[in-house]
Structures are given as structure tokens and as C-alpha cells.
Design a protein around this nucleic acid. Structure first.
Lengths: 140, 140
DNA sequence: TATATTTGCTTGCATTTTGCAAGTGCAAAT
DNA sequence: ATTTGCACTTGCAAAATGCAAGCAAATATA
């Protein structure tokens, strides 16, 4: 197996090797908040990811233990993509990006409200969402 | 002026348009923790950024109000790059990436100790580092 | 049962971005 | 006066991206 070499010992650079691109965290977002879990779900997201890029990102996320692919309960033609615990642990990272964004850019009002609410008690929000996501893991 | 179009209304995708690549946050890291502030400083970082990429990333970060370029007090041949308040506000994002990394990967022991300490009281750590960074802003 | 459609991709190809090496112009040190 | 340092720019090959089309298996429809 070909292990891609690290650029340095810095954990930040190592993390960016995993999700430092324009698409990976959007897939994680869709899994966390978008109620999306299939290839076509991700394809339909507003940003319009190209199908080959989606395939390569899903592969990368899977190889890095962020998402996990399994059989879909409804159909053999579908697959179910889910966040692993490691993927769920990206919630605080994504939250802080939203909070940063809220501070420096405009955004849809409903989302803004949610973020401000979450910001009030980050730990509570994180724990609650994490719990929900872990529950989703064992479903089916 | 050519404004690059947003991929969607999602603040996460907008943020990734700003710093969603393998290099931008490493430059921010160098400015935050590495005591680096010149072009050559960034070039010398362990990851070995290519000089043309560094130039383009610094330009992007500047255009997006994350860093600011000014005259260097020591020499007319040098320039000083500094984080803006908006750039300093990325501290919590970077912190959470470090914390995620600490949970899921190995890392240098001294850095690990710092991260664990910061994690104990994130708000205290954030406030203190932010204060130091803002002080650095007004120096010179 | 035959046909059409859905699903999750892969392939080909043009365009863009990256990475590497070399070069440039100005400032400063020797 | 010449060399060195600094902050880039340029050229070019290689890799990644984006777009459209194709494809096999599974499912839905006629």
C-alpha cells in the first residue's frame, strides 16, 4: 500500500492533507447537517461538485477514516455513506468556521440564528449534535 | 475588479473559497505561532511551499483581508506581513483542527502538551493568544 | 417480460493549478 | 564595485479539476 508522504510533522499540515481542499468538508457538512447519505445526494448539493471529483473525495475521506461506505437498506443499487466517529469529531472545526464566517460575512438569516444559538453554548451544542450523529451511526 | 463568484450561499463553502487549500492556513499558522512575518520566513517553513504558490497565496490572503502587507521597519528590501483582526479570528478554527489532530494522530510531544493545555480552557487560551497577536499588530 | 430509468460510478479530454528551476530588479552588505 | 539578500516573476512539465459522455448493475415501468 502506497502511503502518501507527510509534508511535515505539523498536525495542521497533516490535517490539511486530509481535508484541505474546496470539497471534502462540504461532503462532511452534507452528512452532518444536510441529511444526505448517498452519492446522488452529494451530487445534488448547491455547489455542484463534478462527479469524478466527488468519487475521488469520497474515496479519500474513506481512506482517511472520515466516512464509511456500506450497503443501503433500501436498495442494492445504492450505497450508504456515513460519518465515522473521527468524521463526527470534525464538528467543532466546522462550527468554528461557521462562527468565523458569521463574524465576517453575510449569511442566510435562519443559518445565522442557528449559529448564534450554537455559539452561546458551544459545548452543549457539540454534545447534542454529536449524540444525534452517533445515534444515526447505529441505525440500520 | 473581477469578483470571483460564490459557489453557493453556504458560509462554509464561502470560507473554503478563502482558505480551503493546502497552504493558506499554514501561512496563517506561521504568522500566529511561528514568529514569521516575511516572505522568506514563510518560504523556509518545513512544508516547503513553492515560491510562486507562496506569492499567490499571500495575494489571496491579502485580498480577502486575512493578512496585511506593510513596509518592514528594518529594511526597504523587506516587507512585513501581519494578520488582520479577521485573520486573528481564525485562531479558534486552527485550534480545533489541532485538537482534532491530537485526538486522531500522533504528534510532537511538546506540541501535544500545548494543545492539551489549551483544550482545558479554550476561551482563556483564545483570549490570551488573541491579545498577544493584537499587541503585535500595533508594534512598529 | 421487455424497456426505460436510476444509481454509482469511470473515462476522455480540455482547462486550470501546482511544483520546480531559473531569472529579475532593487536594497543592502562587504 | 561586487556580491548577497529579498521579494518576487516567468517558463514549463506534471498533476488536479471540471465538464460531458459512457457504462454496468439494479430497480421501476409498460
Amino acid at each position: 500500500m502506497e502511503t502518501s508522504k507527510k509534508r511535515s510533522d505539523c498536525p495542521l499540515s497533516g490535517s490539511l492533507d486530509v481535508f484541505g481542499d474546496k470539497w471534502s468538508l462540504l461532503i462532511v457538512r452534507d452528512l452532518m447537517f444536510g441529511n444526505k447519505c448517498t452519492y446522488n445526494d452529494f451530487l445534488k448539493s448547491d455547489e455542484g461538485i463534478a462527479t469524478n471529483i466527488l468519487a475521488s473525495r469520497l474515496k479519500g475521506l474513506e481512506e482517511n477514516g472520515i466516512v464509511e461506505k456500506s450497503a443501503h437498506p433500501d436498495s442494492k443499487a445504492k450505497f450508504l455513506y456515513r460519518l465515522t466517529p473521527k468524521g463526527i469529531d470534525l464538528l467543532p472545526v466546522i462550527m468554528e468556521i461557521y462562527i468565523w464566517s458569521d463574524k465576517h460575512y453575510e449569511m442566510p438569516p435562519d443559518l445565522k440564528a442557528t449559529i448564534r444559538e450554537a455559539k452561546k453554548d458551544k459545548e452543549k451544542f457539540t454534545k447534542q449534535v454529536t449524540k444525534e450523529l452517533k445515534m444515526r451511526m447505529v441505525d440500520k
